[in-house]
Amino acid sequence: MLVAEILKSKGGDVFGITPDTTLANACSELDRRKIGALIVCDGDRVVGVFSERDLVKAVTSDGASGLDRPVSRYMTKDVIFADPGETVATLMGRMTDRRIRHLPVLNDGRLVGVISIGDVVKCQIAEATQEAESLRTYIAAG
């Protein structure tokens, strides 16, 4: 399955913040949206990803005083992207190798969605289930 197909079924909603958003506001947004990461954009340009993992690092390094600081101080700046034409298997490898759980998806340089490790796992489970059902049907018919 391709990234574009996952986005088609889940939608292309992207929840983003600006680099000057405070850590406290970013945390509120994560909680309100029930998501694990926010895409940090400066205008139309993706400049980072702020995840729960970044929050843990912020609290560890700066404690409660970090809540008033901008996410640009804590976000992951080396953003790894996905392309709509890539396969789920490719993403699984990239996410596993890099130990990341969220990939912004760019199409012609434009942000069109976010794929999470949960999306990838859900897709792989669905494919395995479909394959098992096809085998059952084939065996039963034979």
Score class of each variant (00 low, 15 high):
G142M: 09
C41H: 00
A132S: 10
D108R: 14
E86A: 13
P104G: 08
T129Y: 04
I35Y: 00
G43T: 09
A4S: 15
D68P: 00
L111K: 00
T87I: 10
C41V: 07
G16P: 04
Q130E: 15
D54S: 05
C27I: 06
G36E: 01
E29R: 15
Q130G: 10
E133I: 10
T18M: 10
V40N: 04
S51C: 08
T137Q: 12
N25W: 08
H102E: 13
N25D: 15
S134E: 14
S61K: 13
E52F: 00
C123Q: 11
G36F: 01
V88W: 11
I35N: 04
D119H: 05
V47L: 07
E52G: 01
D44Q: 07
T76L: 11
L91W: 00
S65H: 13
V112H: 01
V59C: 06
V114I: 10
L55A: 05
Q130N: 15
I139T: 02
E86S: 12
I35F: 02
D119W: 03
V120I: 14
K10T: 05
L106P: 01
E133C: 03
V56W: 07
C27T: 04
P84Q: 12
C27F: 05
Y74L: 12
R32E: 14
T22S: 15
G48I: 03
V40A: 08
L67Y: 06
S51H: 07
A37K: 03
G48R: 01
D83G: 02
S134N: 13
G48F: 00
D97H: 15
V114G: 07
A132K: 10
L55Q: 01
S9M: 13
G36C: 04
P19T: 15
D42H: 05
I115Q: 02
L67H: 08
P84I: 09
G12Q: 04
T87C: 10
D68G: 12
K57Q: 11
V46I: 06
A128K: 11
V14H: 01
K57A: 12
I100R: 05
F15R: 12
T129S: 11
P70G: 09
L23P: 01
A126S: 11
F15G: 06
D83L: 06
K122G: 09
L23A: 10
A128F: 07
T22K: 06
V120S: 02
L30D: 04
V46C: 05
A132T: 02
R32I: 13
V88N: 10
I17H: 03
T21D: 06
C27A: 06
T22H: 06
D68H: 07
A24V: 05
R33E: 14
R110G: 00
P19V: 15
Q124C: 07
A24L: 12
Q130P: 01
G11K: 02
L135H: 04
T76V: 10
I39G: 00
G113W: 00
G48D: 03
M92Q: 13
L91F: 01
N25E: 14
F81K: 02
S61Q: 13
A24M: 09
V120L: 06
S65Y: 11
L30I: 07
M75C: 09
K10S: 03
G113P: 00
T18I: 13
S9G: 10
L135V: 14
G66F: 08
